[in-house]
Amino acid sequence: MSVSAADIDFALELFDGLGPLTHRKMMGGLCLYSDGTIFAILHSDASLWLKGAGDWADHMTAECWELWTYSRDGKKTTAMPYWRLPDAALDDPDEACRLARAALACL
Rank of each mutant, 00 (worst) to 15 (best):
S71A: 13
H23M: 11
P81Q: 04
P93N: 09
S2K: 11
W49S: 04
R101Q: 06
W83C: 04
H43M: 14
D55N: 09
A6N: 06
K25F: 00
L99F: 02
T37K: 15
C97L: 06
M80F: 15
W65G: 10
P86S: 04
C64L: 15
D45H: 02
G17P: 11
S2L: 11
R98H: 11
V3N: 06
G17K: 10
S4G: 08
D16S: 13
M60R: 01
G19A: 02
F39Q: 04
W65D: 10
L90I: 13
A62C: 04
L67G: 12
D45G: 01
D94V: 14
T37R: 14
I38V: 14
Y82H: 13
A103R: 00
C31S: 13
R24H: 10
K25I: 00
L50H: 01
H59P: 01
C64Q: 15
R84K: 15
V3W: 05
Y82P: 02
G52R: 03
P93W: 06
L104H: 13
M1L: 07
Y82V: 12
P86F: 10
P86T: 08
C106S: 14
F10T: 02
A57E: 07
V3E: 10
T78N: 12
G74F: 11
L67Y: 03
T37G: 09
W68P: 00
R84H: 13
L21K: 06
G19L: 03
L107K: 09
L50Y: 00
D7A: 15
L30D: 01
I8P: 01
A46L: 05
I38S: 01
L12G: 02
L12Q: 03
S2W: 05
L21G: 06
C97T: 14
T78E: 15
K75G: 15
T61L: 13
S2Y: 07
H43S: 15
P93Y: 09
L50N: 01
M26E: 02
G28W: 03
C31T: 09
H59T: 11
L21R: 03
M60N: 00
C106Y: 03
M1G: 11
L107F: 12
A100E: 02
P20H: 09
I8C: 05
L14I: 01
A40F: 02
A57C: 01
A53L: 11
W83E: 05
S44I: 00
F15E: 07
F39G: 00
T22A: 09
A40H: 05
C97A: 09
M80T: 14
D94M: 15
D45E: 08
T61Q: 12
M26T: 04
H59Y: 07
P20W: 03
A89L: 08
A102G: 11
F10H: 10
G74Q: 05
R72V: 08
A96V: 03
A6K: 07
A100D: 03
I38Q: 10
L32W: 04
L90C: 14
L48I: 05
L30T: 04
G28Q: 07
D87V: 14
D92V: 05
L42E: 01
A62M: 09
F10E: 06
T77S: 14
T22G: 14
I38R: 07
L12H: 00
